[in-house]
């Protein structure tokens, strides 16, 4: 039986003007979470919010979990003010993970902003298991100052970073940048970031018949598959982002409705 776990904040620091890294120690060593899955976090804070907030871990080292969080609203602002020693409640693991690689796969990982969290966790989780993996990482942010220094594996990745603030609801600068790059050979692509960015890549990959998965973000009430608050329409009927996803085969999504 799963149960909520209580962790202790060990560190909380701003990595960029908008993004902070929250480090929490959870005592339960047996907890496992696969890349692409997420957790729901709840903290009291000065201005408690009613609902939990969903995040994918950025990195897990022993019992220390690192979360990459963009300061966007009341919930994330509460989390940004947590101090070492503060307690936090977590529901985990939630949702369906990314498809695991096979030993010598060529993987293209595409991250926009804090969409880097599950993407980097994929790298740090699978590279030690499959050292022959060939990974290309493409990371985009709106501002140069939001670039996150990768904690490791830079020497074994093909890594591209692009900052451009001209993105809008209908255009993805990261996709435009991708098209200027030399052709990247890959078996499977995983994409996580703002909706216009995922839409641009997914439409292109679908047209090119490339296997690709996206990790969707949607406002959730439970994250547990209880409430249907985060439902989307797909070619296979209505799906809950929290429990049927958040990882979806991009070619099965109706991007016009998202």
């Amino acid at each position: 039986m799963k149960h909520p776990v209580i962790g202790t904040v060990k560190n909380n620091r701003w990595l960029t003007p908008n993004i902070f890294e929250l480090m929490v120690a959870f005592p339960d060593h047996s907890m496992e979470i696969k890349p692409g899955q997420f957790v729901e976090l709840q903290c009291q804070g000065n201005h408690p919010v009613y609902l939990n907030r969903p995040f994918s871990p950025f990195m897990i080292r022993h019992q220390d979990w690192y979360f990459l969080i963009q300061n966007k609203g009341k919930g994330t602002n509460n989390l940004s003010h947590l101090q070492p020693g503060d307690k936090i409640t977590m529901l985990s693991p939630l949702g369906k993970p990314f498809l695991p690689p096979t030993a010598d796969n060529k993987i293209l990982l595409i991250a926009g902003g804090v969409g880097l969290a599950p993407i980097y966790y994929y790298i740090s989780h699978y590279l030690p298991l499959y050292p022959k993996l060939s990974i290309t990482l493409l990371h985009g942010t709106s501002f140069e100052e939001d670039k996150i220094e990768l904690p490791g594996y830079l020497d074994v990745l093909q890594y591209y970073f692009h900052a451009d603030q001209s993105a809008s609801q209908t255009n993805s600068n990261l996709f435009q940048y991708y098209q200027t790059l030399p052709k990247i050979d890959f078996d499977t692509a995983f994409v996580c970031g703002p909706l216009p960015m995922m839409r641009a890549f997914s439409r292109y990959f679908t047209k090119e018949n490339r296997i690709h998965f996206v990790s969707l973000e949607m406002m959730m009430a439970c994250g547990l598959g209880f409430c249907k608050g985060c439902s989307i329409s797909t070619s296979d009927g209505m799906k809950s982002v929290c429990s049927d996803g958040p990882v979806f085969d991009g070619s099965e999504l109706d991007w016009n409705l998202l």
């Binding site: 799963k2 149960h3 909520p4 709840q42 009613y50 609902l51 939990n52 409640t89 529901l91 009430a221 439970c222 547990l224 209880f226 409430c227």
Partner: peptide, 8 residues
């Protein structure tokens, strides 16, 4: 709605 926040 309490179930949505803590399933226990």
């Amino acid at each position: 709605s309490a179930n949505l926040i803590d399933p226990t």
